[in-house]
């Protein structure tokens, strides 16, 4: 327990520091890299919670696919340096306000839950094999079949949309 707790503390510091650096960095490529570090630490959190499947999917999908595409776009457009003048001046106050609201909400939920049920359950209390690939598959195809199918249709629409948008207009 103590070694897990120490590991968690280190990872939490890394996660928060990388998220902050991502926001504050003025170079888009560095921001993207900090986000990759953040995703990697979240993958390790999943490992700590005894769910290697989610950890691997986190790395493959977020760090491996989405962020590579982000980097690709940033590099191909050559927009590494953010401009100093802001084009959307109303964005910053709204973002700060919404961020504070989210933080307060999260804190409130954690504390109210804590008061109702005592200390939050230890992550070791999950059964071994929790969130194993087979369990997730069974859950997806039984309980959450409709949302799963809707998501796949949405993805299909997005793929077709991308193909239509990139088609040569002249031909």
């Amino acid at each position: 327990m103590t070694s897990d707790f120490l590991l968690f503390l280190v990872l939490a510091v890394v996660a928060v520091a990388s998220a902050l650096s991502m926001l504050l960095s003025r170079n888009a490529v560095y921001s993207a890299l900090f986000l990759v570090i953040n995703f990697a630490t979240i993958a390790v959190f999943f490992l700590l919670l005894g769910s290697p499947f989610l950890a691997m999917v986190q790395v493959t999908v977020y760090a491996g696919a989405i962020m590579v595409l982000f980097l690709f776009i940033i590099m191909i457009l050559g927009t590494e340096q953010l401009r100093q003048d802001e084009t959307l001046p109303w964005q910053r106050p709204i973002a700060i306000f919404l961020g504070v609201v989210l933080l307060v909400e999260t804190g409130f939920i954690i504390y109210s839950l804590g008061f109702q049920q005592g200390i939050l359950p230890d992550f070791r209390s999950f059964a071994s094999g929790y969130a194993s690939p087979a369990d997730i598959g069974i859950l997806l195809f039984n309980e959450y079949l409709l949302p799963f199918e809707i998501t796949s249709v949405l993805l299909l629409v997005a793929i077709i949309g991308a193909i239509v948008l990139t088609k040569d207009q002249k031909s």
């Binding site: 290697p52 499947f53 691997m56 999917v57 493959t60 491996g64 696919a65 590579v68 690939p133």
Partner: peptide
Amino acid sequence: NVGVLYLIAIASISVY
């Protein structure tokens, strides 16, 4: 128990 997924995950970050 997710050995093959581990391979895919590592292969996917090797481009960085």
